[in-house]
C-alpha cells in the first residue's frame, strides 16, 4: 500500500487488515505499527529525516458555538461532580484522535502538500515535479521537496503537469518523448482494461492500435485554433480542445480510479482553475476527527507515536 492513485493501490486498500498485534510484546507492537505507518507516510525519507520532523506536540481545536457562548457563562461546566452538570449522564463528545495527528509535520512538506491538493498522482510524482522546477512557492521557484510550508504560503504547480497527473494517459503512443521523461510508475498503467480483456488487459492495451492517424495529427497541428479542433469531439468545450502536443489524452478527461482517492483536506484551499493552492494552517484534530489523511486507525498510530517518543 502506497500513497498513490493507482488502481493496484485501490485494490490493496480493499484488502487492508489491521496489523496482527495480539500475543506480541509491547515492543513488537510498537515496532510493527511504526514499520507499517512509516512504509506509507513518506517511505522515501530516511528514519533520521523523519525523526527531525517529528513533533511530540499535537494540535487540536475545540468547536465553539456563538449561541452557547452567549447563553451560558460556563458556570455549569464548573458545577456538578467534576465534569460539569449532567456530564456523567449524557453522551459526551467523541474523543479527540490526537494520535492520528502523528504524521502532521509530513503534511507540511511541499511534495506531500502538492499531492494532497490533487496536483500529483503520488508524493513521488509531486517530488519529481518539485525537483524538475515545476512548483512555485509564493511566486518563486522552489526545487526542494522538503520545504516546510508555513500558514499562508501559496504554492502552484505547472498546469500541464497537473493535467498530466490527473488526466487519462495518451493511449497507443508507446513511449513518446514526453512520456519517457515522466518515468513514474503511473505512466505504465492500463486504464482501458475492460471485462473482456480480463487477465490479459496489461498486455492487450500496450498493443492497442494508435487511434490517431497521421492525417488527424497533422490537421490538429496545422489548425491550432480551439474552435476548429473542438468540432472533432462530442462535448465541444472550446476550453478543452484536442491538442496532440499535450502529454495527456485530449480533450482532457479525469484518469480512471480517481474518485475513491478524491479528497482535499481542510487545511488547504485549492483553485484547480489555475493549479494554485494555499496552505491555510497546520492540520488539527477535532472531536472524533483528524485532518491528517491516513489509512491507519488511531490505535496503530498511538503505538507508532509511542515508538517515536524514544522511551522504549
Amino acid at each position: 500500500m502506497r500513497q498513490s492513485w493507482s488502481k493496484w493501490n485501490l485494490y490493496n486498500l480493499t484488502r487492508q487488515r489491521p496489523p496482527r498485534l495480539e500475543r506480541r510484546t509491547f515492543f513488537q507492537q510498537k515496532w510493527t505499527s511504526k514499520a507499517e505507518t512509516r512504509a506509507y507516510h513518506g517511505e522515501y525519507l530516511t528514519a533520521r529525516q523523519w525523526q527531525t520532523m517529528f513533533r511530540r506536540t499535537l494540535k487540536a481545536v475545540v468547536p465553539m458555538y456563538s449561541v452557547d457562548l452567549a447563553e451560558h457563562s460556563g458556570a455549569h461546566m464548573a458545577a456538578g461532580r467534576g465534569a460539569g452538570v449532567g456530564a456523567d449522564q449524557g453522551v459526551g463528545v467523541p474523543a479527540v484522535p490526537y494520535m492520528s495527528q502523528l504524521y502532521w509535520p509530513m503534511e507540511r512538506r511541499l511534495d506531500i502538500a502538492c499531492y494532497r491538493a490533487m496536483f500529483a498522482a503520488s508524493p513521488r510524482m509531486a517530488r519529481q515535479f518539485v525537483i524538475h522546477g515545476f512548483v512555485k512557492v509564493n511566486g518563486k521557484k522552489m526545487t526542494h521537496p522538503n520545504y516546510m510550508l508555513n500558514p499562508g504560503d501559496m504554492f502552484s504547480v505547472d498546469q500541464t503537469k497537473v493535467l498530466y497527473a490527473t488526466g487519462a494517459p495518451k493511449v497507443g503512443t508507446g513511449k513518446s518523448a514526453s512520456e519517457s521523461t515522466e518515468s513514474d510508475s503511473e505512466s505504465t498503467e492500463t486504464p482501458e482494461a475492460t471485462e473482456e480483456e480480463e487477465g490479459t488487459s496489461a498486455e492487450a492495451s500496450d498493443e492497442a492500435p494508435d487511434p490517431v492517424t497521421p492525417d488527424e495529427a497533422l490537421a490538429a497541428l496545422s489548425l491550432d485554433t480551439p474552435s476548429s479542433s473542438s468540432s472533432t469531439h462530442k462535448k465541444g468545450d472550446p476550453n478543452n480542445p484536442v491538442d496532440y502536443s499535450k502529454p495527456y489524452a485530449t480533450p482532457w478527461r479525469p484518469r480512471d480510479y480517481l474518485p475513491p482517492f478524491a479528497f482535499i483536506p481542510k487545511y488547504l484551499e485549492v483553485n484547480h482553475n489555475t493549479c494554485h493552492a494555499v496552505y491555510l494552517r497546520h492540520p488539527v484534530a477535532r472531536p472524533g476527527q483528524t485532518e491528517v489523511p491516513s489509512p491507519f486507525g488511531p490505535e496503530v498510530m498511538q503505538l507508532a507515536f509511542n515508538w517515536f517518543l524514544r522511551r522504549r
Binding site: N239, N240, N271
Partner: peptide, 26 residues
Amino acid sequence: LKAVERKWQNEGKHVSSYLTKALEQM
C-alpha cells in the same frame, strides 16, 4: 486565489475550468 485567476484571464492564459468541474463531481 481568485485574484490570481483574474490575472491569468486578463493575460489570456489557459484556465482549466474543466478540471475543477470534474473534481466537483468526485
